[in-house]
Design a protein around this nucleic acid. Structure first.
Length: 757
DNA sequence: GACCTGCTGCGGGCTG
């Protein structure tokens, strides 16, 4: 048979194409031929060269649907066909989504039909009988989620060495989405535990989108030898990017008539008419530009998804057109979500999904004409991932339409509104995106919640384990490398405390599951390491206001925005999950309050540059340009070009740190400890003295600059944000928070700079 | 001013 990739038309591209193809096993080549592929992609060519030789770990990095899966499996399957294994799964694929596993199953089954190898999908939706069959007769390719692999360790720990006895590679999909998250650390711990169970190293292949710092990704894949991880990045040409950023003034020049029905329905928690006007204008623009093609619009929250989907559907109906705009988020039924996904994938009908991050990752949904983004997202990495869904066909530009809404101003407007921080962030992110920057993976945290989970899991797997063995498995060889022996011992003592009862110790020192530990491990909810958000009830003077998910550090004294109003937290009752608040005086509720995602230092630093600068970005429409002009005049008026501490009147001071969320949050907490009232914005901390005796702000800042800033006791707030945190004591919780969510290390230097020292 | 992800074993009732 003639190789389809070595034809005389030169389709094989630059050098070696046919050589790579010829190296693949015969059934694999036949499959490629049958598929009618005219060439292998660049990343596939190079992956074949690397993966057919040697045993090196590798990261294959390319945009979504860049052919990464085939790049990994064509050579890996070839090597299994050439040298069959002696029993057990030959190859393992770990994927973070069930939908992804179903998708890969269909593709690999087709490929493996030619080869005689079996493919076993394994996740929560797969029938128990199918899994039992795979367990009794393991071979070929296993496709599994991290949670199902965890369940395998807990329930069938003794079968693990047999099941993976001849596994020659583990492929980890969507590596960029896991990294230093609890789930990523969990997955890495499982990889090590498989290796320990079979008593040898197993090759690791990571599939990833392009990251800001691929070096860190290598360290995540193989912490003990990052330098040995081969990096295979797609050389595909950077595609053309077309961007427009449109500005909207809530209640400004675009103000339409408020519809009577919407006005009637307006109550607590729904937007004010001014926001409604801007939303309607954005909706009409989306309608005019997106109708008739395939698009994704990221709306930022489930509520916004519903609002915009409803608006766009209405616009279709008004014009007697069939609807082509559909909402997509996690609270919608699976049926509805698959309907939208299938319709996008099939591509026969024009379709726009208005979505949350549900459609950021996952299965291939085909060629997208345009990506809409309402408001700036939290990270440039996420923006890049979303944009990766657009314009993938050769020669097609990627199109990004961003929409920023800013408040209408009056004499009482808050300085955060006047500085147009949302617009500034959108501009900062677009510029960083164009420059090719994106957030590096965050420095490794302690992950004490996930470590607690893995301690219980290893004890369950082996029916008991010594402290030494646990440390060797999880911290020496596993991913919890920042945990030193004294800290690990402190954690074990806490877990073994009779009141906690996760562990108990046999007379010979072996650690066994305690009463509570058994209860946890026996329930299926144990297998997932990530937290499903708990809601705290918010109560104002005995009257319930609603519920609030607590996902970040909340502390008594902080100002939050809730139910459209501004409150100060009086006390937090962790056990009863109640937050007592009282109304907070002064100003209007700021648009940026409370908690949210982590915005990186570099993004906030760039926001300052945008506000301090004078260039007019060409991708702004007239309204956005106007808004930017206003923001720059305000920046200048406040003297923020030269000053970092500004008196804005009424005893309120503005500290311009221009630091990201973790640094800004640490300063806010430190000042709170010194008796100030604090509100936290992007790059800014607003401070006022409370009580009659006005505390000395500069004096307090000098103390913080001297390193005496944080005396966190944990008594006055909640540091509980992850699934197993509530078993830990304050000391452990603080260590964990400081390692991940509160950047205290930079605090003295940051404050010294504020003071101009 | 977020968003997202995952899950076993067993018994009872029903169908073919």
């Amino acid at each position: 048979m003639t190789s389809p990739v070595s034809g005389s038309d030169g389709a094989a591209g630059a050098g070696g194409g046919s050589r790579a193809f010829e190296r693949l096993a015969e059934p694999v080549r036949r499959w490629i031929w049958r598929k009618g592929w005219t060439e292998l992609r660049d990343i596939q060519e190079r992956a074949i060269a690397v993966l057919m030789d040697g045993e090196a770990d590798a990261i294959l990095s390319a945009a979504t649907a860049g052919g990464k899966t085939e790049a990994a499996f064509l050579p890996l399957l070839s090597s299994v066909i050439d040298r069959p294994g002696a029993g057990g799964f030959d190859l393992v694929y770990v994927g973070p989504l069930r939908a992804l596993i179903n998708d890969q199953f269909a593709r690999l089954e087709d490929l493996c039909a030619e080869t005689g190898l079996k493919v076993h999908p394994w996740h929560g939706d797969i029938a128990a009988g199918v899994k039992a069959k795979a367990r009794r007769n393991p071979s070929g390719v296993l496709l599994i989620t991290p949670e199902s692999l965890e369940a395998l360790f807990v329930l069938r720990g003794r079968e693990v060495p047999t099941l993976f006895a001849s596994t020659r590679a583990i492929v980890v999909d969507e590596l960029h989405a896991l990294l230093d998250s609890p789930r990523g650390v969990h997955m890495r711990s499982l990889l090590t535990r498989v290796e320990i169970a079979v008593g040898r190293r197993i090759r690791r292949i990571g599939l990833s989108a392009t990251l800001g710092d691929m070096g860190l990704a290598r360290a995540y894949l193989r912490p003990e030898h990052p330098e040995s991880v081969e990096l295979i990045q797609s050389r595909a040409e950077g595609q053309e990017l077309r961007v427009q950023l449109r500005g909207y003034r809530a209640g400004g020049p675009n103000r339409p008539v408020v519809e009577p029905e919407e006005a009637r329905d307006r109550g607590e928690g729904t937007p004010a008419p001014a926001d409604l006007a801007a939303r309607r204008a954005i909706g009409e623009h989306l309608f005019s530009k997106l109708r008739g093609s395939r698009n994704l619009v990221f709306a930022g929250s489930r509520q916004n998804v519903e609002l915009y989907a409803d608006l766009l559907r209405q616009l279709c109906e008004d014009r007697a057109l069939p609807n082509e705009f559909f909402p997509h988020h996690a609270s919608l039924s699976r049926d509805h979500r698959s309907f939208v996904e299938e319709r996008l994938k099939a591509g026969r009908l024009p379709t726009t999904a208005i979505c949350t991050s549900t459609l950021e990752l996952g299965i291939d949904i085909g060629d997208i004409a345009c990506v809409g983004q309402i408001g700036a997202p939290w990270s440039v990495a996420s923006l890049r991932q979303r944009l990766g869904r657009s314009g993938r066909r050769a020669g097609q530009p990627a199109v990004l339409r961003m929409y920023a809404t800013e408040a209408a101003l009056d004499s009482g407007s808050h300085v955060a509104d006047r500085l147009r921080l949302g617009l500034a962030r959108a501009i900062a992110m677009i510029e960083l995106l164009v420059e090719g920057w994106c957030e590096p993976p965050r420095a490794e945290a302690l992950h004490l919640s996930t470590l607690t989970h893995q301690v219980l899991s290893v004890v369950a797997e082996r029916g008991g384990a010594s402290a030494r063995r646990l440390y060797a498995t999880l911290c020496d060889r596993g991913p919890f490398r920042r945990v030193d022996p004294p800290l690990f011992l402190r954690l074990l003592r806490r877990l073994g405390d009779p009141e906690v009862a996760l562990l108990e110790q046999a007379p010979d020192g072996t650690l066994l599951l305690g009463r509570e530990g058994e209860r946890l491990v026996e329930h299926y909810s144990f297998y997932a390491v990530f937290h499903t958000l708990e809601e705290y009830r918010v109560v104002a003077q005995g009257k319930p206001l609603g519920t609030l998910p607590v996902s970040d550090v909340l502390v008594a004294g902080m100002t939050i925005v809730f139910s459209g109003r501004r409150w100060r937290i009086v006390t937090i009752h962790d056990r009863d999950k109640v937050i007592d608040v009282e109304p907070d005086k002064g100003g209007r509720p700021p648009p940026f309050g409370g908690d949210g995602g982590l915005v990186h230092d570099e993004v906030v630093r760039r926001m300052r540059e945008v506000l301090a600068g004078s260039d007019q970005p060409i991708y702004l429409d007239a309204h956005a340009a106007d808004l930017l002009g206003e923001a720059r005049r305000e920046f200048f008026r406040l003297g923020l070009r030269d000053r970092s501490i500004v008196d804005v009147g009424s005893g309120v001071m503005l500290l311009a740190t221009w630091s990201g969320t973790t640094g800004n949050g640490a300063l806010a907490l430190a000042l709170l400890q010194q008796g100030f009232r604090v509100a936290n914005f992007q790059g800014l901390v607003e401070v006022s003295s409370q009580g009659e005796t006005g505390a000395d702000l500069r004096g307090a800042l000098s103390e913080i600059a001297g390193g005496q800033g944080l005396l966190l006791s944990g008594e006055d707030g909640t540091l509980i944000s992850e699934k197993f945190h509530h078993y830990l004591d304050n000391e452990l919780l603080l260590a964990d928070a400081v390692s991940s969510r509160l950047d205290t290390s930079e605090l003295p230097a940051m404050v010294a700079e504020l003071l101009g020292e």
